[in-house]
Every structure is written in structure tokens, then in C-alpha cells.
Amino acid sequence: MFQKTLADTLAARETVRITCGHPACCKSTQLDIQALIDRLGPDHGSMHWDLVGFFVCSDCKADGRDRRPVFFTFVPDYRGQDEARTRRVSKPTFGRR
């Protein structure tokens, strides 16, 4: 089974957001993938279960709230995909008369 790594996430130019699961907080922050690579290594997994143990909501901790799970959202590089799509040269599939 393919294991997606932090290096794969960085190469795909994906944006990764982490969101606190506490209903009184729901703070969301964009992760710095390069900083994670510097800390954990490029071959470290980038899926939820690979990262969830490393993160705690600092706002909830400061306010004394109980620890709740965090959630990750991976957003593809839509701009890069659109640019690649517009660079393609389309050719008609029909002949001229």
C-alpha cells in the first residue's frame, strides 16, 4: 500500500490545514510542510494518523479546556492544476472539408 510522505505533499504543493476539534474553539491553522520535514524527515508519513500525535491546540491548552482530537484538511494545488490544463494545446479531432 502506498504511503504518502511529507516530501510527496510538498512536491504536490498541497496546502495542509489543522483544525481543533473542540466545539468552543475550532481554531484552524495552515501547517508549514517544510518545517515538518526539517523536524520529522522527508520520509515521514503525511496522513492523519502519522501526524495527529504531534499536535495539540495551544488556545485550548491555555484556556484549560480538555484535549480534543485535531483534524487535517489537505487542499490540492488547484492553481497549478489549472495552469497545467491551460498550457495544453488542443487539436481538433475532425478533418477540414
Rank of each mutant, 00 (worst) to 15 (best):
S58L: 12
I33A: 03
S28I: 07
H48N: 08
F55S: 01
F55Y: 08
F72P: 09
F71H: 11
V56G: 04
G41V: 04
D38H: 04
R39I: 00
D77P: 02
I18Y: 07
I37T: 03
A24P: 02
D50W: 00
G95A: 09
D8K: 00
I33L: 05
F55Q: 03
V52N: 03
P76A: 08
R85S: 15
L6G: 01
G41E: 02
T15I: 11
C60K: 10
I37P: 10
W49D: 14
D82I: 08
Y78R: 15
R79V: 14
L51H: 14
V16F: 03
S28T: 13
H48E: 10
T93G: 14
T19G: 05
G95H: 09
A24V: 07
H44M: 01
P76I: 06
T86M: 13
Y78V: 13
C26I: 07
R13A: 11
E83C: 05
F72E: 10
Y78F: 13
P69T: 11
P23K: 04
H44G: 00
R17M: 02
T29R: 09
G53A: 01
A12G: 03
W49I: 01
F55T: 06
D59P: 02
A7S: 03
D32Q: 03
F2N: 09
L10E: 11
P76L: 11
A11T: 04
F55P: 06
I37M: 05
T93M: 05
C60E: 10
A35Y: 03
R87L: 14
R79D: 13
R96F: 14
G53Q: 02
H22A: 12
R97E: 07
V52A: 11
E83I: 12
A84E: 14
T5Y: 00
G45C: 01
T86I: 15
M47P: 00
A84P: 00
V52Q: 15
T29K: 05
T29S: 08
S28W: 01
C57Q: 08
P92H: 07
A11M: 06
I33Q: 04
E14Y: 00
L6S: 05
S46D: 02
I37F: 02
C20A: 13
W49A: 07
C20D: 14
G41R: 01
S46F: 00
L31E: 11
L6I: 04
G41W: 02
C26Q: 13
M47I: 04
G95Q: 12
M1S: 06
C25E: 09
V52C: 09
C26G: 07
R65Y: 15
A11K: 14
R67Y: 09
D32E: 04
P76N: 03
D50H: 08
G95S: 10
D77T: 11
M47T: 07
P42I: 00
T19F: 01
P69Y: 05
A35C: 05
R87T: 15
T93P: 09
R85L: 14
K4F: 05
V70K: 12
R17Y: 11
I18V: 15
T93Q: 10
V70N: 15
